[in-house]
Computed example of a mutant assay.
Amino acid sequence: MLTRHGVTEQQWRVMRVLRETGEVDATKLAVIACVLAPSLSRILSSLKGSGLIHVRHDPEDRRRSLISISESGEAFLKEVAPESSRIYAEIEDRIGLENIARMLDDIEQLLKALDRSADQANG
């Protein structure tokens, strides 16, 4: 579905995060959207080139970029979201809400374990 609309899954995720959080700095956006910083740079460049987001320098710290969804980005999300919701509903029907919740819990536990391992390795 996303390919038909000309965006990648990561671009879609970044735009949805921006819609939910409002303007945010690139570091926080990378964490919330679960995207590595080098990948985020490419994603932002592409989305900015398409006019789907705005990127500006923080007036208090010019090294920091602040990113927000543009009006075009909002319109794009509004157009594509119903189809996305139908697909998620179909997945939920096939797999079941309990199984999805269990998988998400398992993924969260995995991520926490990986974070702990990284913390232990770093110090």
Results as ranks from 00 to 15, higher is better:
R63T: 14
I91A: 14
Q10C: 10
N122E: 10
V17A: 02
I87N: 02
A75Q: 11
L36R: 15
A75I: 09
R62E: 14
H57C: 08
A30Y: 02
S39W: 00
I100W: 08
N99E: 14
L29H: 06
L66N: 06
H5G: 06
Q120D: 04
S41G: 13
E83P: 03
K112V: 13
L114Q: 00
L29D: 00
L104E: 13
L29Q: 00
I43K: 00
I100M: 03
L110G: 10
H57Y: 12
L2R: 10
C34D: 14
G73C: 03
L97N: 14
R116P: 03
S117W: 01
S46G: 04
S68W: 08
A89L: 09
E9L: 13
R19V: 00
L97I: 08
G123W: 12
R13F: 02
E83Q: 11
S68F: 07
G6E: 06
E90T: 13
M103K: 12
V7H: 04
R102N: 05
D106T: 12
S70P: 00
I95D: 01
L77A: 00
L114H: 04
R42P: 07
H57M: 02
S85I: 15
G73Q: 04
D115F: 05
A113Y: 02
N122K: 11
G51W: 07
E74S: 07
S41W: 02
D115G: 00
S65A: 15
L77R: 05
R94I: 14
L110E: 06
R64M: 00
R64D: 09
A118S: 05
S50L: 15
P59S: 02
D119K: 15
R63E: 12
R116A: 03
V31M: 05
D115Y: 08
K78L: 04
I67W: 07
Q120R: 08
L36N: 13
L36Q: 15
S70I: 04
R42C: 08
R42I: 02
V17C: 00
L66V: 06
V24C: 00
E98Q: 12
I100T: 03
R64Q: 05
P59K: 06
S39Y: 10
V7Y: 07
K48F: 10
G51C: 03
E74Q: 13
R64K: 12
T27I: 13
E20K: 15
S68K: 06
G123D: 09
R94H: 07
R16W: 01
A113D: 02
S50F: 09
R56P: 09
A89C: 05
A81I: 08
I43R: 05
R63F: 05
I32Y: 06
S72C: 04
I87R: 09
A75N: 09
A89G: 06
I69D: 10
L36T: 12
A30I: 01
G96D: 04
D119A: 14
D61G: 08
V7I: 10
